[in-house]
Structures are given as structure tokens and as C-alpha cells.
Amino acid sequence: MRSFDTELKNLRDGIMAMAGIAEEMIELTIQALAERASAKAEQVQALDRQLDEWELKLDQLCIDLLALHAPAARDLRLIASSLKIVPELERVGDHCCNIARRTAFVHPPILAGDSLEQLGARTRSMIRRAVDAFVGHDAPLAHAVIQSDDEVDELYGQIYRELLRLMLADPLCIERASHLILVIKNWERIADQATNIAEEVLYILEGRSAKHPYLRGNAVE
């Protein structure tokens, strides 16, 4: 295997390692929220450092590959998209930390039903499938991830309106509800990150941007 191919494999492996850590953080965050488990919240913070370290390492690797190998075609697309996927995964970690930090302030629960758990689970699924699409070169799966974002947005909207209603009804729950608004906003942002990753996967595979479909055909000169 050529040294360039080895380095490209290192890049892919690095992104998969980051994705593994991000998924573990999401899982721990879901558990910390449900169980009010402060130990798990602390684990989330510790894992975030690993993500940050990976980000620096992979950023440098991408720059080196661009500078030393002048890549083209699918190699170029992989490296260019990696430069965008890596910070998305790093941001997933930051959002998990933001949620985990609030676990102490959202109990006892004020939301009826399992909508909060569902939001976490759907977001986790989006990140997992986006990463699977990257690993498996799976364009249909990447498209499916992008479509899932609307469902998460809708669920977010529902919970948000419910929290507003609760705050109006009972001022005593305002503090918990405001923390929860930030919690659901962070979940919703993680789903956006999954969408962005899926869009990059499509760029790598198909060579054209999947972003902003409403602008398609109106290229900027």
C-alpha cells in the first residue's frame, strides 16, 4: 500500500474513532439525563477531551495530505469533507457536555410521557446512521439521515411548546423547564450535525453538494 493510501486510511480510521467516542458520549448523556447520574455526566466531560485531541490530530493530517500529496478526485473529496466532518463530531461532544451539565437541574421530571427520551434516541440514531453511511459508502442511508432531521425538528417543536405551556401553568417549574429548553436545543443541534455529516458523505460519494437544495441550479458566478 502506498504511503498516501496508508495516510488516507489513518484519516478514515481517525474519523471512525471520533464517531465512536461521540456515540458513546450521546449514550452516556441519555443515561445521565434519565437516571440523574452525575458520574455518567462526568464521564461525558472526560470523553470530550479525547474528541478535542482527535480534532487537532486529524486537522493536521488533512492539511499535511493536501500540502504533500496534491490529492484529486475522490481523495480530494474525502479530505475536503473530512475537514468539515471532524469539527461536526467535535461539536457533538460539546453539545453532549452542555446537556450533561444540566442533568442535576431537570429533576424531578416535569414532562409527561417519553418525548425527551425519544428526542435523545432519534438524535443518537441519526448520528449512528450518518457514521454508518460514511463507513459503508452508503448514499441512500445518507439521504435517509437528512430526511430524519425534519422528524427531530418536529419533536423538538412539540416539546418546546409543551415546556412553554408548563411554565405558564406553574411558575415553580420555570427553572427546570428553562434548563430543559436548552437540553432539547442541544439535541436538536446534534441532529443538525448528523445532517451535515450525511451531506458531506454524499459529497464524497457523488461529487456534488447536497446542501441547500433550494439553491440548486442558481450557482453563484
Binding site: 502506498r2 484529486a72 478526485a73 475522490r74
Partner: peptide
């Protein structure tokens, strides 16, 4: 040609 060639052979050539 250098970002999204159509032919596999072109892709293989320009990516070495």
C-alpha cells in the same frame, strides 16, 4: 476532471 471525473480510468490516473 480533477474533482469529479466521470470515468473510472481517469479517476485512477489522476489519483495515482
Amino acid at each position: 476532471i480533477f474533482t469529479t471525473p466521470r470515468e473510472r480510468m481517469t479517476e485512477d490516473y489522476i489519483t495515482g
